[in-house]
């Protein structure tokens, strides 16, 4: 996880922002179980928690979240970090009013991850878009094909190595 790197912070603010698991556990006891299941954790605010999960454990972890009330998959997106690709899932609990953002790192040469469409149906189009833009393959997705770009488009535009060039006009 990245650390906050601001210079002009005053001390009080910086001290306030470093939240730990114990700070939010009274309102959210589930956090202790989540800590055991994840590789890394960063607590941005009381209701924004970033976790990092290995791609083998993603499906189990998502099922676990769904069982505990995280029923709204807000967004799925990819990020090209140059050395590796990253998929981020933003999951919101309508009951707890808390957002857990799951990050999964994928190697460049093998960008395959399990699809979560079996858990949240809303992942369908989001995953198709991520495939379209980054070429990340979602295993067991029912209909994985390009969504925004035409089928004959070459390359994945949001990757950092994609060059925007003049194309032939009609």
């Amino acid at each position: 996880m990245r650390k906050e790197g601001r210079n002009d912070d005053n001390e009080a603010e910086a001290g306030e922002r470093k939240l730990t698991v114990d700070d939010i556990s009274p309102a959210f006891p589930l956090i202790y179980e989540i800590v055991k299941k994840v590789d890394g954790m960063h607590i941005q605010t009381c209701n924004k928690i970033w976790v990092e999960v290995k791609r083998e454990n993603l499906l189990d972890f998502c099922k676990f979240l769904k069982e505990h009330g995280f029923d709204h998959l807000s967004c799925v997106l990819g990020v090209d970090m140059k050395e590796y690709l990253e998929v981020v899932y933003h999951v919101w609990s309508y009951i707890d009013r808390r957002m857990i953002s799951i990050k999964v790192k994928l190697p460049y040469d093998d960008p395959v991850v399990d699809s979560v469409t079996s858990i949240w149906k809303s992942a369908d189009w989001h995953e198709r878009e991520t495939y379209d833009m980054f070429g990340i393959v979602f295993r067991n997705h029912p209909n994985l094909k390009r969504i925004l770009l035409p089928d004959d488009f070459e390359g994945h535009p949001l990757r950092k190595d994609f060059k925007v060039e003049e194309r032939g006009w009609y």
Partner: peptide
């Protein structure tokens, strides 16, 4: 969909 896609994020 995608007939108005202009690559906003890029």
């Amino acid at each position: 969909i995608g007939y108005l896609h202009r690559g906003f994020e890029k």
